[in-house]
Design a protein around this nucleic acid. Structure first.
Lengths: 174, 174
DNA sequence: TTATTGCGGATAAAAAATATCCATGATAAA
DNA sequence: TTTATCATGGATATTTTTTATCCGCAATAA
């Protein structure tokens, strides 16, 4: 049971984007630099977030990414599902009916109890992730993290965020 | 986020072993046949269960596997951890400190909040798995599954279990 | 027009999961 | 004692997945 590295990158990027002002954007290259990641690969993950409507993207110079909605309404579950896919971690191969004795298909209409138990645990996992809002992550970081990392992070956002044309800045999304 | 196929195989095998009498055993080859699995690969997983002291193995003819303790005291978490390993699914790569600005190491002594949130969800997952006892799986199967599959399963166990030498049969482990 | 950016496809490289084989030691049965 | 059966562990091969790179394209700000 493993999560890909893209999940960590995606959450960190989303948290950073929660700090940009109004509808300003931040380029994928800037976020790749911020976390020491391969730019071309990070774009794949950001793309998944865009496809899932967690992020919005703006092409062209001064383009980049921003949150598609407030950080209050983005959960870690949203991000994990966008990056890892929605299929459950436990995939029942129905090996109960792969044996030598071939019973009629009607004998297997009731779902496999093992599958049910595994999926139940996974629902608990997803419920916990659904409780974790991106805004909580950001607030906890601001309050609890080392002040040096907080100011470094804010400075990075300040330096790399890019205001958009023809639109007034809106209040922070956090 | 994916679990290997070995997990499904391991749980099914453990559930089947819960049905053997006393200290009788069942060979890995028999279980591979029961579920249509590759014998040589299934042995790897059974081996992990043995190493985790969930199963006991007996070499030689009439040898095989049996539960190392009652099915009441074996949980799905035990099995999943034995097969998949104990490391958390989310592995924090500390990318927060991989950026271009190199802060002093003392700035990162507080744990990463994102990692903490992900691990919290994983604790919920594991807690749910720890609640699921192997004996529950077996009882539910006996009570709820299609009677044809139940009797087929019991017949298979009856046919392949092998009594051990010099020891009286003990009551079922369920 | 030019430079920058995200997007998508193709592809490659690396890592992990899956699967097979063989030599070994243990042991029950003949 | 011999033989056959079984689990064990190592070595290795195969397949799949993950990670990563590259290039051409469309959009767009300057």
């Amino acid at each position: 049971m493993k999560l890909g590295e893209g999940v960590e990158a995606a959450i960190h990027c989303a948290a950073m984007l929660a700090g940009v002002d109004g509808n300003s954007t931040m380029s994928g290259a800037a976020m790749a630099e911020a976390f020491g990641l391969s730019p071309s690969y990070l774009l794949k993950h950001l793309n998944q977030l865009t496809a899932a409507r967690i992020l919005e993207s703006v092409p062209g110079p001064a383009g980049g990414y921003r949150l598609a909605r407030s950080a209050e309404r983005i959960t870690l579950l949203d991000i994990v599902l966008a990056v890892e896919g929605k299929e459950p971690a436990f995939r029942c191969g129905e090996i109960r009916q792969r044996g030598p004795v071939r019973l009629d298909a009607s004998a297997y209409v009731k779902p496999c109890g093992i599958n049910a138990a595994m999926l139940k645990a996974e629902r608990a996992y997803r419920a916990a992730l659904a409780e974790a809002k991106l805004s909580d992550i950001v607030v906890d970081f601001m309050n609890d993290a080392d002040p040096r990392t907080v100011s470094a992070s804010c400075a990075f956002v300040e330096r790399h965020q890019r205001p958009q044309k023809n639109q007034s800045n809106q209040p922070s999304k956090v």
